[in-house]
Simulated scan of single mutants.
Amino acid sequence: MINIAIIGAGIGREHLAALRELSSEFRVVAVVDQNLKRIEEIRSGDTFVALTDITKVLTDPEIDIIDICLPPHLHVSVTLDALSFGKHVICEKPLATSLADVDRISDAAKRSGCYVFPVFQYRWGPSLAQLRHLMASGLAGQVQVASLETHWSREYDYYSVPWRGTWSGERGGAVLGHAIHNHDLLTHIAGEVAALSAMTATRVNEIETEDCASITFAMTSGALCTSSITLGAAGDETRLRFVFENLTATSGTAPYAPGGQPWTFTARFKDQQHEIDKAVVNTPLEAVGFEGFFTEIGKAINAQENSAVTLEEGAASISLVTAIYHSSRTGARVNLPLLPEHELYKGWLP
């Protein structure tokens, strides 16, 4: 049994719901939040301890994993503290807000011998399992182009939380806090980014950070990809399309769990459609979102073959965000990877 403490009862609510479904592998020992009432609102009959002091879980020898569900400006310090006490870490996005801090986390993880799992739960779901199966079988071929749409709606009530929409609290806007999941899916499916160009703007809300963006990516494979982002849409929709050599994969519009909604897989050549359909039908089922995410962490902790999100993948995500902000401010095309001498390596805050 893997014992886990959730830090933060906001997005921690969703983590808890997934962990309830995996009670044969995980036991939630404690939930920590400054507001005990908020903890009780998510308890739903659970027997975990409600705490306001994180030190109590850091020093508890029974706890294996610290699950960080806090505002972004607290992620690095709590991750480093957890690692110093010999705990594995799950950290909500973003893992950090500078590549220098990612290096600090990486060094601390090596010293402790513990895992750090950045949260990218969008990777899991039946439709994404089908796409990965088509790719692994050779039926898809190489990615040619891809387009991502993160078209969501965020209004005054969302930004009534004091730290949101600020550089000091949220550390970024739609690029960092919203589209980061879809950009992770892009690299998960299409591979590494070689270069990008980006434009960002604040057009929807009276906030400090960006709420719109348009980005073009050149992948190391040669594929060309685009990302369109706004928090001023009529509703919340995520739409993904990957055009491969032999098929086109198109998502539905589910905003937060794109792998949980059926995708279409259309053969470029009609005589291949039957084989593609057969492969899709024969793909093993996969849990959606956080449940799939935690399942793979359980395998990693138990030294089993797994596809858990790695610290290196979290680092790549922060590198991508850094490059996007640099491009949007300078108008330059930015090549990746970014080196330590890059001017935003220590952070992108204005």
Score class of each variant (00 low, 15 high):
Val89Gly: 08
Thr150Phe: 05
Leu148Gln: 04
Trp163Cys: 09
Pro162Ala: 09
Arg111Val: 00
Leu95Asn: 07
Trp124Ala: 02
Leu83Ala: 04
Gln144Gly: 01
Lys110Gly: 00
Trp152Gln: 03
Ala129Pro: 10
Leu83Gln: 02
Ser106Phe: 07
Ala129Leu: 10
His133Pro: 00
Val119Pro: 00
Val119Lys: 05
Ser137Ala: 13
Gly177Trp: 11
Val161Cys: 02
His133Ser: 14
Gly165Lys: 02
Gln144Lys: 14
Pro162Val: 04
Gln144Phe: 00
Gly169Ile: 01
Ser112Gly: 13
His181Val: 04
Ser98Ala: 11
Asp157Val: 13
Leu99Ile: 12
Tyr156Asp: 07
Ala140Phe: 04
Gly86Ile: 13
Ala100Glu: 10
Asn182Phe: 00
Pro126Thr: 12
Trp152Asn: 03
Gly86Gln: 08
Pro162His: 08
Ser106Tyr: 07
Trp167Glu: 08
Arg132Pro: 01
Ser112Cys: 05
Gly113Met: 10
Cys91Leu: 02
Glu92Phe: 05
Val89Thr: 12
Ile180Thr: 13
Pro162Arg: 10
Asn182Ser: 13
Ala146Glu: 03
His133Ala: 15
Ser98Tyr: 09
Val161Trp: 03
Arg104Phe: 00
Trp152Cys: 00
Asp103Met: 12
Val116Leu: 11
Lys87Trp: 02
Met135Gln: 11
Val116Asn: 08
His183Gly: 00
Asp107Ala: 15
Val161Ala: 06
Ala179Asn: 10
Asp157Thr: 14
Gly177Pro: 03
Trp163Ser: 12
Ser137Cys: 02
Arg154Tyr: 12
His88Glu: 08
Gly165Phe: 01
Gln142Glu: 07
Pro94Thr: 15
Gly165His: 01
Ile105Ser: 02
Ala140Tyr: 03
Ala136Pro: 03
Gly165Met: 01
Leu83Ile: 09
Ser127Thr: 14
Ser147Asp: 08
Thr166Lys: 11
His151Gln: 06
Leu99Thr: 10
Arg132Phe: 13
Val145Pro: 00
Tyr156Ser: 09
Asp81Arg: 15
Asp101Trp: 00
Ala129Phe: 08
Val143Asn: 01
Arg104Gly: 01
Ala136Met: 09
Cys114Pro: 04
Pro126Phe: 05
Trp152Leu: 15
Tyr115Cys: 13
Leu99Gly: 04
Leu83Arg: 02
Trp163Gln: 11
Leu128Pro: 05
His183Ser: 09
Ala82Ile: 14
